[in-house]
Every structure is written in C-alpha cells, then in structure tokens.
Design a protein around this nucleic acid. Structure first.
Lengths: 216, 216
DNA sequence: ACTCATACTGAGATACATCTCATTCCAAGT
DNA sequence: ACTTGGAATGAGATGTATCTCAGTATGAGT
C-alpha cells in the first residue's frame, strides 16, 4: 500500500517523460531520414540516453515505429474529427477528410513525412486510415451520391490518391493539390465533374490546432 | 589487331553470359524478397559466383538495381508498344497502357513484384513509366477527350492508381482490376462514367509474348 | 612447354545494426 | 547515515552488409 503515494507517482512521471523523449526523437529522426534509415542508437542518442535505455521502454524498433505512427494518425484524426462528423453529406465527408489530411500534413511536415515513410515501411498504418475512408464512402453510397460500389480496390485507389497528394504537397505543390486530390476521389466514386468540384468546396482550410508537432 | 578474332569474341561471350547470370539472379531475388532486402552476396551466390565477382560486373548494388529495373520496364513497354501505338484515340491509349501493364505484371509476377518494390526503392523508375503516360494523356487532351489539364499531379495520380492496380492484382484480385484501374484514370481526367467504361473496352487481354520471365 | 590476358575466388577490412547484461547512479524512505 | 529499487549506462556479443585485393585458374596463342 505504501507504493501508492509520491514515490510511485514521481517515478511514473519520470518514466513517462523519458518515454516521451524517445518517441519525440524517433518521430523527428524517422521523419527526416525515413523509418528504416533510422537506427535505435540514433534515437537513443537524440533523446540523450544510452543505447540500452531504449530497450527498457520498447521491446524493439518495430514497437516504437508502431507507437509513433499510430500516434501521428491519431493526432491527425483528432484534429479533424469534429468538423468531419458535423457534415451530413457522405461525399462532403470524403472530400473534407482528404483535404484536411493533406493540409495538416503540409502544416506539420514532420507528421506528413513520417506518414509517407510509414505507407511503405509500416503498412499497417494504411488500415487505420482506410477505416475512416470506408465509413465515409459507405455513407455516401447509402445516400445515393456515388455510382461506384464500395470494395477493397476503391479504397486502395483512395489511399493511393491521398498518399500522392501528401507527397506532392510536401514537395512544394500549392494547396490546390488537396482540393484536387479530393475531387479525383469523388470522380473515382462515379460523381460527375461539376458536382465533384462543387462538393469539394472552395477552401476548407485547416482550422489548425495551435500545438506544433506535439502528440497527445 | 590479333585481339580481333575468336579470342576476344569468345571472352566477350563469356562475360556477357556471366553478367546475365547475375542480372537474372538479381531479378529473381529482388522480386521475391524486395530490393533492399537482397544483398550482393545473395545475388552472387544465386548466380553461383563468388562474392567478389559481382564487383567485376557492377560498380555497386545500386547499379545492378538500375539495370534490372530498367530492363523490366523496357520489356513491358516492348510487349505492348505496337498495339498501343496502333490506337488513334488518346483515351484508348491511356486505358490500354494501364490495363496491359497490370495484366503483364500479373502474368509475369516476377516482373510485377520487382516493379512494386522499385516504386519505393528505385524511384527513378517512375519517370520511365510516366514518360509514356504523359504522351498518351497529352494526345487525349489535344483530341478534346479530357477536361482535366495535364500537369504533374495528374501524372502522380495516374502512377498511384497504376501501382495500386498491380499490387491488388498480384495479391490475387481478378482481371477486372486492370479494367477498373484504367476506368478510374479516365474518370480522373474528367471523362464521364459511361464513356470511360466504353473506352476501356470489354477485355483487352494480354497477347502474351511466350517468353517467360526472360529479359532481352 | 610456356606466356599472358582475362575471369574468378574468397578471406578479411570496415562499418553498422540490434539487443543484452553486469554494473552504477540516484533519490525517496527510514 | 543507510537501505533499497527503479532508471540509466555503455561495453560487448552477435550478426550481416559492402567492397577490396592478393592470389589462383583457365585456355587461347606461340
């Protein structure tokens, strides 16, 4: 019973802080030079910890990769979920989700670059993103907004367009890229050109959370 | 002057054969386990040569990667170029190129898997593929078949769809995937659903070159 | 038989990467 | 002052990759 008080809580605080140092260092490095090109020793060094300390917090490299990638996608979804869910039209949700995803990636390039890397080096992340896509596309279909049925390849195509949008935006393309990516997705779903342009709207700009590159 | 005759030619023949053994081993291994996961020693061993022999034929690993990837894309284009160029309609060329690319990748999975790997591990290959896409899309635009102008992001989106198609097909999806990938590209270019379906046609099946997995 | 160019060999230098573990540090509790 | 236990250390065991190079094998030409 004695472990309950200051001791444990202060230790737990320290543990959490050290762990955060590691994940933050990992995020920065993996974003800069790619996931597989980042070594455990580099992460530990960047966090000003000895090599071995890393293994007190993560079983191995793949574990921290998963943790960091998941935290980033989670943060991005949190950033956009309330507005996205306030939209009644499934097509509008699809468009908003994609535009916002790309714009957040551009505003927080550390997140964006990590995710681009994760698309090939931690493929599980795709499923996290696809999950929301499926919901929005299904809603749009139910509402009769799309002619294309929902299946795996449609989602693959959506993910591919999303990724291409993030890459282009990070490479310096203007904000029109996110609107176009959304428009292309709607066209793939069978919506005509004019309606797709209308739905993706003029400019759903990032209502940016002020937190810069910090993960919850 | 004496070096001209049988001597040099027979030596050159041997050199060429050894080099081919290396590229064939490289193609097979890199296709199976990915480009970066294949080591130079594995390639040499698979070609039944000593490690060091590799370096008598290629400066380093990146050189053989470029050679093999380029050879595969070249072979695929050769396979489809005559039919593709016989089509007058730019939209039909776009659709045919994509369907054929995906179907060849499915029929020669060794090529297909290598290219999927190359898309992320030897990015230069994208430009080789994009080159032909640009020509076909430009032709279609000139003919007034598309409403979307030609720019880099349209090509990025096309490459993304193409890649997704190959991946899906190799993962076991049916031949409808290649037709759908082509259809999605046409929709992205602004063509309406009905016309896109008409253009991509019923079934432009692979007129398969009988050579199995051999590169010129 | 001998020469000589070329092909080929394979052990080893070098460089990192992952992960372990015997040890040391440190701060709270008595 | 002393105990105690989690946090942190960092040298090293192990594995694997790239690339080199001194030396060997082969076989055509003389």
């Amino acid at each position: 019973m004695r472990e309950r008080s200051p001791r444990l809580s202060s230790d737990a605080g320290k543990r959490a802080r050290t762990r955060a140092r590691l994940t933050e260092a990992a995020l920065r490095l993996m974003s800069e030079r790619g996931i597989s090109a980042t070594s455990v020793s580099e992460i530990a060094a960047a966090a000003e910890l000895a090599n071995g300390t890393f293994y007190l917090y993560f079983r191995d490299k793949s574990e921290i990769v998963a943790v960091v990638c998941r935290a980033v996608t989670q943060a991005m979804h949190d950033d956009m979920s309330s507005t996205r869910l306030s939209l009644d039209d499934g097509a509008a949700r699809v468009a908003y989700g994609t535009q916002q995803f790309i714009e957040i990636a551009a505003a927080e390039p550390v997140w964006g670059r990590l995710l681009v890397s994760a698309f090939t080096e931690f493929e599980a992340i795709k499923e996290d993103i696809a999950h929301y896509m499926r919901l929005d596309v299904a809603l749009g279909i139910e509402q009769g907004r799309f002619s294309e049925p929902l299946d795996e390849f449609v989602i693959d195509a959506h993910l591919a367009i999303l990724r291409a949008g993030v890459v282009a935006r990070l490479a310096g393309a203007g904000p029109d890229v996110s609107a176009r990516a959304a428009e292309y997705q709607l066209r793939i779903l069978g919506m005509n050109v004019k309606e797709a342009k209308r739905v993706r709207g003029s400019d759903k700009r990032r209502a940016a959370s002020t937190t810069t590159s910090r993960l919850g």
